[in-house]
Design a protein around this nucleic acid. Structure first.
Length: 511
RNA sequence: GCGAGAGUAGCUCAGUUGAUAGAGCGUCAGCCUUCCAAGCUGAGGGUCGCGGGUUUGAGCCCCGUCUCUCGCUCCA
C-alpha cells in the first residue's frame, strides 16, 4: 500500500517534470486542487477527448454532440435540485477535531427520539398482546405525544433556520438539544458553516443578489435544457443521445489526490433519451458499451470493476460506477445512471414549457427517460497515466522510466533523429520529419547520445523513434524503434508513412 | 476548518555552536562521434515561501503569516 501511495507521488512529479500537469499558479505557491495541463498533458487530454467523441458521436448514428455554456439561468439549478442538495451545513467538535454535517447530527438526534417511541410501542405490544390498541396508544400516550411534539419542534426550528440560511440558529439548536460528539462526548462545537458546493458569481455590471448565477457543477443540465432543440432541429427519434465534453466546477470542501478531485474539472458525458419503461434495457446496454470503451484502451482488465450504488441520488432509479484501480485504490472513474424523467419533468415544471416527445410508433407524447454516462476526463487521464507509468529494470542494473500509453493516445507519435549530428544525417532526418509533421505530432532530436534520446521519448510515451544512420544515405532505409520492446526494425523510408498509419489505426480498438 | 509535517537552484537534497549560499542530476553552448540515460570543457540558474523581531551579523533563534502534503469531515 505504501508502495502504491508512493506511485502517486512518482506520477505527480513525472507529470511535472515532463510537462503533463503543473499545479495552478505555481509561482504564487499554487492553488489547492487546481491544476494546469502542460505541453504534453494538453495533447494527451485532447487525444482522450477525441477518442471518446469518436466512440460516442462518430460511431453512433443516433448520438449527436453539443457544447452548452457553463453559465446557465439560475432557475436551472433550482429545478435540478442542486441549490438545495448541494449545500451542507458543517460543524466541528473542538475536542475530537471531527467534522460533522449539522443536519445529520440533528436528524440522528430526531431519530433517537423516534426510536424511543417505537420502543414504548413495542413494550406495549409485549405487555398487552392482542389487546394493545397501537393507534390509540400513539394518539394518547403522554410520553409518545411529548416526543412527537419534540420532534415537530426540532424539525420546525431546523426548517426555519435552513430556509433563512441562519447558521447561528442551527448551532443554537444543536446546543439546545445538548447533542454531543460521538467521539469526544463533548458539546464543545464550532460555529456552523455553510458550504455551498456550487461556485457563484454575478452577471451584469452591477453586483446585485438578483443577478447571482452559478458555475455549473455538472454538464448534464445543459443537455437537458437543450434536448428539445436538438431533437427538433436534428430530427432525432427516440432513442437518441446527446454528448458533451465540458468543464464543471465544484467547491469541494477538501479536494486532493492530484487531479483525481479538482475544483475545476472536465466531464465527458452523454444523455440518452429513451421510451419510459425501456430505461433498464438501455441502462444495461450503456454499462456494457462503456466498459468496452475503457477496455479498448488496452489497459489490463484487473484495473476495472463495477460498483453498483445502493444509496441513490435524488434523481436516479439505478446507478453504477466503473471504478479504476488508481494508485490510491479503486475509485470512481465513470458513472452510469438511470436518471428517470426527473430532470426533464423538473424543467417542465420550472419553465412552464412542455418538454415532451411525440412518439409516432406509439402515437403518444411523453417525457423521455434518461440514461446517463458520465466519465471524468481528468480521471481518465490519471487512470491512463498511472497504468502507463512503468519503471523497468534492464540489464546491467540499468533502469528506464517509460510511459506505456495506448499508442493512439500518445502526445507525440514519432520522434525523428539522426544518429550523428554530421555527415548529412541531420538534413536527411529533417526531410523525413518535415514530411511526417503534416500527419502526426513529431519530435526532432539530435542532441546527446542515441540512448539518451530514446529514454527522453520513453518518458513521454512516444511509441516510435525513427533513426537516420549512414546506411540511410546509401539505401534510403531507416530504423523504427518500438517503445515497449526497444526493438528496431529497418524499413524503407517510403514505407514509413503506411507503417505508422497501420500501427496508429483505431479501427481495431473501436470495432 | 482542526491536527501533524514541510517550504534553500528546474529536480533531489546538504548547510556545524549564528559569520560572503553548496553538491549531484537536469538545462544551455562547445568538443567528442558513440544505437538504448553515467566522456571532456564551460555557462546559466537562488532577495533560503513572505513579513517583522533579537543580534555587530540570521538560511539557522523568536513571533506572525501564506502555501503545499498527509489524516479527519464531504464526495452527482
Amino acid at each position: 500500500m505504501a508502495n502504491k501511495e508512493d506511485n502517486l507521488k512518482k506520477i505527480t512529479s513525472h507529470s511535472k517534470e515532463y510537462g503533463f500537469v503543473f499545479q495552478s499558479s505555481e509561482i504564487y505557491d499554487g492553488l489547492s486542487a487546481v491544476y494546469d495541463y502542460g505541453q504534453m498533458g494538453v495533447e494527451l487530454k485532447k487525444n482522450i477527448k477525441d477518442y471518446w467523441w469518436k466512440a460516442m458521436v462518430g460511431m453512433n448514428e443516433n448520438i449527436v454532440g453539443l457544447d452548452a455554456s457553463i453559465f446557465m439561468h439560475p432557475t436551472t439549478w433550482k429545478a435540478s435540485g442542486h441549490v438545495d442538495a448541494f449545500s451542507d451545513p458543517l460543524i466541528d467538535n473542538k475536542d475530537s477535531n471531527k467534522r460533522y454535517r449539522a443536519d445529520v447530527l440533528i436528524e440522528e438526534h430526531v431519530e433517537k427520539i423516534r426510536l424511543k417511541t417505537e420502543k414504548d410501542v413495542a413494550k406495549g405490544i409485549k405487555k398487552f398482546g392482542d389487546d394493545f390498541d397501537e393507534a390509540q396508544f400513539r394518539a394518547t400516550n403522554p410520553n409518545v405525544l411529548r416526543n412527537k411534539a419534540k420532534i415537530d419542534d426540532i424539525n420546525g426550528r431546523y426548517k426555519i433556520a435552513m430556509d433563512a440560511d441562519d447558521m447561528a440558529a442551527i448551532k443554537a439548536l444543536i446546543e439546545d438539544l445538548a447533542i454531543a460528539c460521538p467521539v469526544s462526548g463533548s458539546k464543545n462545537w464550532t460555529d456552523v458553516k455553510q458550504f455551498n458546493l456550487m461556485f457563484s458569481t454575478e452577471i451584469g455590471a452591477v453586483a446585485d443578489s438578483a443577478n447571482t448565477i452559478y458555475l455549473r457543477p455538472e454538464t448534464a443540465q445543459g443537455i437537458f435544457v437543450n434536448y428539445l432543440n436538438v431533437q427538433k432541429t436534428g430530427r432525432m427519434k427516440i432513442p437518441f443521445g446527446i454528448a458533451q465534453i465540458g468543464k464543471a466546477f465544484r467547491n469541494e470542501i477538501v479536494a486532493r489526490q492530484f487531479i483525481f478531485r479538482m475544483r475545476e474539472f472536465e466531464q465527458m458525458e452523454m444523455q440518452f433519451f429513451v421510451r419510459p419503461g425501456e430505461e433498464m434495457k438501455w441502462y444495461e446496454h450503456w454499462k456494457l458499451e462503456r466498459i468496452k470503451w475503457h477496455k479498448s484502451l488496452g489497459i489490463d482488465e484487473k484495473y476495472y470493476r463495477f460498483h453498483n450504488h445502493i444509496k441513490l441520488a435524488h434523481y436516479a432509479n439505478a446507478a453504477s460506477d466503473i471504478e479504476f484501480d488508481f494508485p490510491m485504490g479503486f475509485k470512481e472513474l465513470e458513472g452510469i445512471h438511470s436518471r428517470t424523467d426527473f430532470d426533464l419533468k423538473q424543467h417542465e415544471k420550472h419553465s412552464g414549457k412542455k418538454l415532451q416527445y411525440f412518439d409516432p410508433e406509439l402515437n403518444e407524447s411523453y417525457v423521455p427517460y434518461v440514461v446517463e454516462t458520465s466519465v471524468g476526463l481528468d480521471r481518465t487521464f490519471l487512470a491512463i497515466l498511472s497504468a502507463a507509468y512503468t519503471e523497468e529494470k534492464l540489464e546491467d542494473d540499468k533502469e528506464r522510466v517509460v510511459l506505456k500509453l495506448p499508442i493512439f493516445l500518445a502526445p507525440i507519435k514519432v520522434a525523428v533523429m539522426p544518429l550523428l549530428k554530421k555527415d548529412g544525417l541531420p538534413e536527411k532526418a529533417r526531410e523525413i520529419f518535415d514530411n511526417l509533421k503534416f500527419d502526426y505530432n513529431c519530435h526532432y532530436d539530435e542532441k546527446d547520445t542515441p540512448g539518451k534520446r530514446y529514454r527522453r521519448q520513453d518518458a513521454i510515451g512516444t511509441p516510435f523513434c525513427i533513426m537516420v544512420d549512414h546506411q540511410t544515405l546509401e539505401d534510403n532505409t531507416v530504423t523504427i524503434r518500438d517503445r515497449d520492446t526497444m526493438e528496431q526494425e529497418r524499413v524503407a523510408i517510403d514505407q514509413v508513412e503506411s507503417i505508422l498509419r497501420e500501427k496508429l489505426d483505431i479501427r481495431k480498438a473501436l470495432a
